[in-house]
Design a protein around this nucleic acid. Structure first.
Lengths: 220, 220
DNA sequence: ACAAAAGTGTTGAGAGTACACCCATGC
DNA sequence: GCATGGGTGTACTCTCAACACTTTTGT
């Protein structure tokens, strides 16, 4: 009974400059040396999978406290030239303030790329990104995932832009605002965002959002 | 770099007697000897994961040609008393005619249990079944998955009963039929199902159903 | 005063829901 | 003729989509 090696990989998304961006690291050794790849690596003995994903992400990029959910497990023979390696891929979401992708302990390059302009990727990582984006869109369409891509406080316009960026389609401002406000998920903070143009009210996801959301599904 | 052992497990559902049933095998050796468990086992060297799932399913239960999709990968330390073992769980669907669960080559017991009356299960298989049922409900609610649980030909009442059984709630007959027929997914076969009461028209999922379905999502 | 972004209502179409009776066959 | 399951229509509600102008601030 031979056993495969087991790795985890993280497709980490972030919203900046009205672009959906994905995080990559440049590989420092073969195979695919010098190529861009998803942050990830081998699972350690008796390490829970999600813990491994967080550890690798932090080791390679310095990022912590992101949202993570399991995406899919890839196990096709031939997906890794080193031999039999299966990988559990995670979908990750980070806030716009997560610039902090430092060059990791291994002194690797780390960079965000717009999902519309990906570099050539190592292994089957392009497939992983494509699958992750699909899943992200579904989960944003009917879920609370969008809020993991926003700062804790935001204006309705920022929220709308976030949706538009992830879904890749424009939304009607009035319909959007009505729906957002009627959802019961948002609280005014009282603050205003000032700058260009008229000041905008700031909102937060209200504390019982999860509950409200589940209640909604439970009743219709 | 230690590596875990890797297994696959299949949560196979089937509809009979207005019950949603799940397939189990009785374990012939420790750990959990004599207990019921999901069909599954170790992945062979360089074997694609889904292939492994199908192989184990057939070896242990004789069942082939079922629908399979990946569900989740379980890797918590302690989930298997033998040591570090991760398992890729699959959601499977079989038609009602799949009685054929023969005692496998290993002469194991094989049996279907209603999902509402599960036996005590080995490993973390109860969690797997719970997750699979949840996923099945979502995928049936908005997808074509229900048809993998039905024979190729069926009456509208059979279709309705299938939905009701999976979703666990009654549906209005007239609304259901209107929606089913307006969907454009069904073709009359011309056959009638005769027996008790008035004969019923038989329908099939029409050949371009997949296309129709995707077109629908694409437009709204 | 003007540029720039925030904010605001109404109408029409389609989908979902609730609800009760007649029809065709086997026995 | 009766038991059994098959088949049918209408009215109400609600959600979604389309659509354009006024308000508040900074410069």
């Amino acid at each position: 009974m031979q056993a495969p090696a087991v790795t985890v990989d993280v497709v980490l998304f972030k919203l900046t400059e009205r672009r959906l961006q994905v995080l990559f690291v440049r590989r420092g050794r073969p195979p695919f040396e010098g190529m861009w790849a998803l942050p990830g690596g081998f699972v350690e003995a008796n390490e829970p999978l999600e813990v491994a994903a967080r550890r690798e992400l932090e080791e390679e990029t310095g990022l912590r406290e992101v949202y993570l959910e399991q995406l899919h497990t890839f196990g096709d023979p031939g997906r890794d030239p080193r031999g039999w390696v299966i990988s559990i891929a995670y979908l990750g979401l980070a806030r716009p303030s997560s610039n902090a992708a430092r060059a990791g302990d291994d002194a690797m390059d780390v960079a965000w790329f717009p999902v519309t302009a990906l570099p050539a990727l190592a292994f089957d990582h392009a497939r992983m990104v494509a699958l992750a984006q699909q899943r992200l869109q579904r989960r944003v369409r009917d879920g609370l995932l969008i809020f993991y891509l926003l700062p804790p406080c935001f204006t309705l316009s920022e929220l709308q832009t976030a949706y538009e960026t992830v879904l890749g389609e424009p939304l009607d401002k009035r319909n959007f605002r009505r729906k957002a406000l009627r959802s019961g998920l948002l609280c005014e903070t009282g603050e205003l965002r000032t700058g260009e143009g008229r000041p905008a009210k700031r909102y937060t996801l209200c504390p019982d959002a999860e509950t409200v959301w589940l209640r909604r599904l439970g009743l219709g």
